[in-house]
Write a protein that binds this DNA or RNA. Structure first.
Lengths: 225, 225
DNA sequence: CAAATATAACAGTATTACTATCATATATTG
DNA sequence: CAATATATGATAGTAATACTGTTATATTTG
């Protein structure tokens, strides 16, 4: 996987950034350090000024890459979902058995993220934590419809669609494949959050993983042929 | 129901407010108008200054009721969940049949909210929209653990617990009652959001309701005796 | 080497999220 | 009824945020 990914790039809607952060050293530092900072201090406290100080660069230089921190969050989360999509497509590619294929996808989508050395400047473990804690904020806005129209959420939508398709493949009679797929993706992030902050609201702990919960849920829900 | 509720009050953790907004006319106007404004302009754009202008009062007077707008959001969402809890408890109270009881609770928790005339200054329909669009923001913060410790999320936690208990009553063997309960509450809000903004990611539309989806999900998941 | 481009440094603006002070209106109590 | 406490309003002020704009300097490219 590492080898392949080294020459792969996550294709992100160009309207999300002003200048492609992958195109320069400064851009990569912006992405790299913003992940560390947002993860540490939370999206609300994070500012371009602080990021500039941290990377020894100027606030106005960062604005030449991203219009504002909301767009940067869209960039980071798009990257994350694009990366997940690659992992799912790659891992399920050769699997003929539909059930096995769905299970493999579920595993990847609901598992804890492990360090991936392929994208050197991106810490996927921290990015996963950011997605758990901040992803909702990227779409729970008053501009969601316009940004959706501009394609800012394409990667996530495509991923839900892929999962939904796999569900249909396993049980063509099941009436709510899209809702189940979106529930799994969103719900997985939520269960990880609860596990960390509201352990009473989840059965997931050091013994039980969100993956087990969702695997079980899907196996109970679908009529597996 | 109306009669009963007129003399009932939703008990909200006193640490959430500086001065009880139910205790004065100004307080009620703050709550009433903030619901209308947050619903219209979104939580991010909403400020105490704007609210002050709108209710013909002073910014600093509002600060005497709520430390900041985050606390106000906690107040509003706590009220909402408290109201939902009353509705669930009231509606399921006399039901002996466990399955029927769970179904009734699910209905209330996943249905579209309708106007409730009991609490005159609170527009429950708009408040439900606020919860759909903003609730996550109330806990996706860096202070969540501290605020949780102070009891700011007690009502919501109690509601999840109630639902979880009902699930256990129906199927004591099911291993993930808390996760299922939290998934339903959070997932219901999410499906309503998707229906409005990302229709491709849900099967819910004008024909299919989130209630149908979750009722079906639960009936497939639990072994109903 | 010239020209274009990228970045840095600095200044400036409107808004936000408060805090503080003081005046006045209203309610409470002795 | 007077004294006093409390609630609200008016105004001002501060530090931080989220930018925009200008100019200088460094780097890349043709």
């Amino acid at each position: 996987m590492e080898r392949l990914m080294q020459s792969l790039r996550i294709g992100i809607n160009e309207k999300i950034y002003v200048k492609d952060p992958e195109s320069s050293d400064l851009g990569k530092r912006i992405v790299e350090q913003s992940i560390i900072m947002i993860n540490k201090m939370g999206f609300e406290s994070f500012t371009f000024r602080k990021l500039g100080e941290r990377i020894g660069s100027n606030e106005s230089s960062i604005y030449r890459y991203f219009e504002n921190k909301h767009k940067l969050l869209l960039y980071l989360t798009s990257w994350y979902w694009g990366w997940m999509e690659y992992k799912v497509v790659f891992a399920t590619n050769g699997i003929a058995n539909k059930v096995e294929k769905l299970e493999r996808a579920l595993e990847i989508l609901t598992q804890t993220v492990e360090k991936d050395i392929s994208f050197s400047h991106i810490d996927e473990v921290k990015l996963n934590e950011i997605v758990i804690n901040e992803y909702s904020k990227s779409y729970l806005t008053k501009v969601v419809d316009q940004e959706n129209k501009e394609g800012y959420f394409e990667i996530y939508k495509r991923l839900v669609q892929r999962l939904s398709d796999m569900i249909v493949e396993v049980d063509g009679e099941y009436p709510y494949p899209s809702s189940l797929a979106s529930s799994i993706l969103e719900g997985s992030l939520h269960q990880y959050f609860l596990k960390e902050h509201f352990p009473m609201l989840t059965d997931c702990d050091h013994n039980i993983t969100p993956t087990q919960y969702f695997m079980d849920l899907v196996s109970r829900t679908l009529n597996i042929a």
